[in-house]
């Protein structure tokens, strides 16, 4: 199956890429996607997606785009669906 990933600040600048398609096996989870992304793009993505201290992937980074009023982040074990459009968000601040 295939999912579309949109990159935003700062990964967009680092990779020089706005979006990309990722091929994944059926039933793949967010964790599988993150592994695939860091294999493909290497260190900069790895550093952003995985916590440097514990090696833990940051689940909240990912969220679905294109659907109004749906924004909640994924969990690491969330199963992805074919054709999903996903965004990796920029660091949040404020409140």
């Amino acid at each position: 199956m295939k999912v579309k990933i949109f990159f935003f600040s700062p990964l967009r600048q680092i990779l020089g890429l706005k979006e990309t398609d990722i091929e994944l096996p059926e039933g793949a989870t967010v964790a599988n996607l993150f592994e695939e992304l860091s294999t493909r793009f290497g260190e900069p993505v790895k550093k952003y997606i995985f916590d440097g201290m514990t090696g833990r992937p940051r689940g909240y980074l990912l969220y679905q785009v294109g659907k109004k009023n749906q924004s909640t982040s994924y969990k690491i074990d969330t199963k992805l669906k074919d054709g999903e459009k996903l965004a990796i968000m920029s660091p949040p601040m404020g409140g």
């Binding site: 909240y60 924004s71 909640t72 982040s73």
Partner: peptide
């Protein structure tokens, strides 16, 4: 650029809760 806007637009500031809790 920063795609955080649609997330804030749809979810408001509580959209940051997941980040904050996991970190």
């Amino acid at each position: 650029d920063k795609f955080f806007a649609p997330k804030l637009q749809a979810g408001g500031t509580p959209a940051i809760v997941d980040f904050s809790n996991e970190e």
